[in-house]
């Protein structure tokens, strides 16, 4: 895969601090109370961060702000030293699956190819390198046999893999995954995790929102616990302390024999079959 300027020579160079930084960032929809309040955090280059918190904690809002879809009311976001709307290198954002119309008349390959559209100017067609990246992304998520299927015929897990393949085709330096484990079976979950392992090796910075606290603590080196404000941020062992969890989840959290149980029923956990 081709690499952009930000990762070139990083192996022997000085450690890059903060490929992505939020400084006292607040976001609100219209005149409502802020969905995200005064959040400051720095994600080191190549780190993988689980973003957890109750429903309405601002996880999706955070991602949308990071790609410049929502303006900041105050504070600052800097990715590779630039604001979200002025990025030279691709940031791949994988929204929740409900964000698009899956009855749209396109094939799996068409959707994955859209990941390359940012590199092709209007009036131009995709080049050989683009088609190669699409094929590689399809193969990486075992989608090659489904490449010519209309997306209307896919299951929820297949849809999730198509979205992820499209993000890989972008060859991003920063990847934002919104709820990739919601409503998918164990096999899809494993394939998402193995993609994340590959990306770790390639030093792609990744933020992944999830409801699965156990997964967050076992498979990620950093956890951001969010409830409009940033309640805690750091290594899983430091973040998942009873006081932090209580602060984020309130009465929904209980400790049982040293194990954390959180009742986060039920919104956003429905299986989406289309």
């Amino acid at each position: 895969m081709s690499r952009g300027r930000h990762s070139e020579g990083s192996a022997g160079g000085p450690p890059r601090d903060g490929s992505l930084t939020l400084t006292a960032a607040s976001v609100s929809y219209g005149r409502q109370a802020p969905a995200l309040l005064d959040v400051s955090l720095t994600v080191p280059h190549g780190a993988q961060v689980a973003v957890v918190g109750p429903n309405g904690a601002g996880k999706s809002t955070l991602f949308k702000a990071l790609v410049g879809l929502l303006p900041l009311r105050s504070g600052r976001i800097s990715i590779h030293g630039r604001p979200p709307n002025d990025q030279e290198d691709p940031i791949a954002y994988v929204p929740q699956r409900e964000e698009v119309d899956w009855r749209f008349p396109v094939s799996v390959r068409d959707v994955v190819a859209m990941g390359r559209y940012g590199r092709v100017r209007p009036l131009r067609r995709l080049r050989a390198a683009d088609h190669a990246a699409v094929d590689e992304a399809l193969a990486g998520l075992d989608l090659a046999p489904l490449a010519d299927r209309p997306i209307a015929e896919l299951s929820g897990g297949q849809q999730q893999r198509v979205f992820l393949a499209r993000a890989l085709a972008q060859e991003p330096h920063v990847l934002l995954l919104d709820e990739p484990f919601t409503g998918v079976d164990a096999a899809v979950r494993e394939s998402v995790l193995s993609v994340l392992e590959d990306l770790r090796a390639r030093e792609v910075t990744a933020l992944v929102s999830t409801h699965d606290l156990r997964l967050a603590s076992e498979r990620f080196e950093l956890v951001a616990l969010l409830n409009r404000r940033l309640v805690a941020y750091g290594a899983p062992a430091d973040v998942f302390r009873p006081d932090n969890v209580q602060a984020a989840f309130g009465g929904g959290a209980i400790m049982l024999d040293g194990m954390l149980v959180v009742d986060q029923c039920c919104e956003g956990r429905r299986r989406w079959t289309g």
């Binding site: 879809l69 691709p90 954002y93 559209y117 499209r166």
Partner: peptide, 22 residues
Amino acid sequence: VLLFKEFLLVTFDPLLAHTLGK
């Protein structure tokens, strides 16, 4: 015909269009 890609992108997924700078 000339803007086929772009129209496809903004009708199917305006969010992606935005993140790709389209």
